[in-house]
Write a protein that binds this DNA or RNA. Structure first.
Length: 341
DNA sequence: GGTCACCCTCTTAATTTGGC
DNA sequence: GCCAAATTAAGAGGGTGACC
């Protein structure tokens, strides 16, 4: 498991994905566009404008931060332009803190952030207030992993529950819960407790990406965990995606963000690697004692031989289905099958 | 030194329950 | 009916004692 930052074909792959999204002709949500909609500034967006909208996705400019929010606004949809200048969260909250002395915060934002939505099309207006929730089966979520794999962002920012659910339902967002739809407030609370960004594991399980979960800030009071999340986002934006809070602790965490469980199997494997791929029992015992990683109860040497036996098809105690890790050189002398110098 | 049987603990996933 | 929390069940790993 590594933090991946290689740049191979990045631009080419991203340009191809952006082009494919923009030319998507599935026409999701078009059945929702039955009446004109009025925006805050009393602008009226006609049904025709809504129906003429095209899937909306950011331009590729070599950005390092992947920002995923719920869906384009109706005006962004009608204008086919991301609403960086109209988004109150960005303009009123983030930009003044990230770019306090800059006259062109939008340009700075666009330079470092690639903006994607859980729905590339406007999902229509709900009967009550607000827009419809994006359909979790929407094609847009299909692009998340394609974009992540191609872009290999320094940092991912997920805004809102719909952006996080794609990763919680597949258990790829590092959380203390196994629930597939944990409430956003719980995710924010856990992120605050960890005092660092969370992690997303790539689809193939080989890469980890720092991930900041945000709640779309309202004008109401902001909780401590929301403030912490916004602070993380500000830090990431100021440093082009680098928070410096995760990579230093990577060796001690697994993909769920919890301490790795150090088993006897892992200890014995590491000891044999240290001893050159094979060793006699006494040398193995001595090395385990020297390392001091394990709790050495009175019967610990029996546990070592039992564990080796359970994972070696050369013994009668090998358990079918276990990985066949060790081989017997002679009685009391063991080797690692896949050891390579 | 190695094997076996038994039991305990922990993790994970599935199911049930209760509140809204 | 939906969602979240609690409960239950299954499986794997770990620990121990007895025996060869």
């Amino acid at each position: 498991m590594t933090f991946d930052s290689c740049e191979d074909n990045r631009d080419k792959k991203m340009a191809e994905i952006v082009d494919r999204i923009r030319n998507c002709n599935l026409g999701c949500y078009r059945h929702e566009y039955t009446a004109s909609l009025r925006t805050r500034g009393n602008r009226v967006i006609s049904v025709e404008e809504l129906k003429n909208g095209k899937p909306l996705v950011d331009d590729w400019r070599g950005q390092n931060i992947l920002f995923i929010s719920q869906a384009p606004s109706k005006q962004a949809w009608a204008d086919n332009e991301l609403s960086s200048r109209d988004n109150s969260f960005l303009v009123n909250l983030l930009f003044p803190k990230v770019y306090p002395h800059d006259d062109s915060p939008v340009e700075k934002w666009q330079k470092s952030v690639f903006w994607l939505h859980t729905s590339n099309c406007y999902p229509g207006k709900a009967n009550g207030e607000g827009d419809n929730a994006p359909d979790p089966e929407d094609c847009a979520a299909v692009y998340f992993d394609e974009v992540i794999n191609a872009m290999k962002p320094e940092c991912i920012v997920l805004m809102g529950k719909y952006a996080t659910q794609h990763f919680t339902k597949s258990h790829r967002l590092s959380l203390s819960t196994k629930r597939t739809k944990p409430p956003l407030k719980d995710i924010l609370k856990y992120q605050h407790e960890c005092q660092r960004p969370l992690l997303i594991t790539s689809e193939d399980g080989t890469c980890l990406y720092e991930t900041i979960v945000l709640k779309h800030a309202r004008n109401k009071s902001i909780s401590t965990s929301e403030k912490f999340a916004i602070g993380l986002a500000i830090k990431a934006l100021k440093n082009n995606g680098k928070t410096g809070l995760v990579k230093s602790i990577l060796p001690s965490i697994d993909t769920k963000g919890t301490p790795l469980r150090h088993t006897w199997l892992k200890e014995i494997t590491e000891v044999l690697e240290t001893l050159g791929g094979d060793a006699k029992n006494n040398a193995i015992y001595r090395e385990i004692e020297n390392r001091g990683n394990m709790e050495l109860k009175p019967t610990w040497k029996q546990i070592v031989t039992k564990t080796i036996g359970l994972h070696s098809s050369d013994t009668g105690s090998y358990k079918e289905g276990n990985p066949d890790i060790f081989y017997m050189i002679e009685t009391g002398h063991w080797g690692l099958r896949n050891f390579q110098n």
